[in-house]
Simulated assay, not measured.
Amino acid sequence: MNFIRILKFDFMNILRTPALLLVNTVFPFILIATMGFVTKSNFGASSVSSYDYYGVNMTIFAVALIAMTAANTFMEEKVRKGNIRILYAPVSKMDIYLSKLISTYLFGTISYSFILFLAQTLFQLNFGGRNLPYVMLLINIFLLFGCCFGTMFCCICKNEEQANSIMQIPVAFFVFFGGVFFGIHRLGVTVNKISNLSPVKWVSECAFRIIYDNDFSIFLPVLSSLLLSSIVCIIVSQIVFKPEEYVC
């Protein structure tokens, strides 16, 4: 029961933060509209429009930033102050960081599932048609990884500003080598091999295969890799997290 109360508190804290709401609802549509409009002449008469292409990629890019939302949910100043009493509550240290992780994941799942559904049904973007549920599942598992990744950095750094500053480096690596803004394959064989280390690249390639080729050959491997990476992040969080450092 205590865990559910903490979880509810963290979830409501996200809903009370306008910046987090905007970043995870309106921001993806702004990115899609901007990139789609700017690059539409590059796609010509192609069956894949610029809005379709960047609809997928900008959604994945926005999801990659969920790690920042997790950091805010975990260590935003007013949350830290309000949770001093948790140190004295009958809950395990895992309950403390898991409540932040799960509340962020629930919020992200609701937001991005709605974004994908709205983009396909109202704005007629191609997110797989009948395969939309599979793309949603892929995005939701990527969300889980992002939440675990952000939580892990908070547990390591013990400070929101420091966590976000350091976390931006691997997130920037994932995004750049994920090729969401331009085809990374143009930079040569070596760079293309490095890009295989990026979860953004896994998700992007898997999504496009499902949407345009009805190809599910890498669907389960990508999901498994993301889940395994999420578990690793949780294990690291459990090892390094100390509640007394969280509330101080």
Rank of each mutant, 00 (worst) to 15 (best):
A119T: 02
C157W: 10
F173E: 08
I84Q: 12
L106I: 15
F142D: 06
G178C: 06
L197H: 05
M94V: 10
Y105D: 04
I184Q: 04
N196W: 01
K81S: 15
A119Q: 09
I156F: 04
L197M: 11
M152Y: 02
P199L: 03
I166D: 09
I166C: 02
I194D: 00
L116A: 06
V135A: 01
F181N: 10
V191D: 02
I115Q: 06
C157D: 04
N164V: 12
G188C: 06
I115T: 07
M94A: 14
G188S: 04
N192V: 01
V171T: 14
M167N: 14
K193A: 10
G188K: 09
N164P: 00
T190A: 09
S111G: 07
F107E: 08
V200P: 03
V175N: 10
H185R: 13
C148W: 02
I102Q: 06
R80C: 07
C154M: 09
C157K: 11
V180W: 03
E160V: 12
R130C: 02
Q124H: 12
Q120V: 05
A119G: 05
I110P: 04
T104V: 01
A89N: 06
K93L: 12
F123K: 13
F145V: 01
S111R: 03
F145N: 01
L132G: 11
I102V: 15
V175P: 10
P90G: 12
V189K: 12
M167I: 07
G179T: 03
M152D: 11
I96E: 10
E160M: 14
F173C: 07
Y134I: 02
R85E: 05
F176C: 08
K100A: 15
F174L: 11
L98F: 15
M167R: 03
K93F: 10
V189M: 13
G150W: 09
I86K: 05
P199S: 06
W202T: 02
P133L: 04
L138D: 01
G179K: 05
Q120Y: 10
N126A: 11
D95Q: 15
M94I: 12
V175K: 02
G178F: 03
Y97W: 15
I141K: 05
L143G: 03
G183L: 07
T121C: 06
F182P: 02
G188Q: 14
I156A: 00
F117V: 14
A89S: 15
F149N: 04
S195G: 14
Y105H: 11
F145E: 03
I102A: 11
Q124K: 14
L138I: 11
C155R: 05
K81W: 09
A172P: 01
Q162P: 00
C155W: 07
V191N: 03
R80P: 04
A119M: 13
F127R: 01
V135N: 02
L122D: 06
R80H: 04
K100Y: 14
S113Y: 04
L132F: 13
Y88P: 02
K193I: 11
L137S: 04
S198N: 07
G129K: 07
S195M: 05
L137P: 08
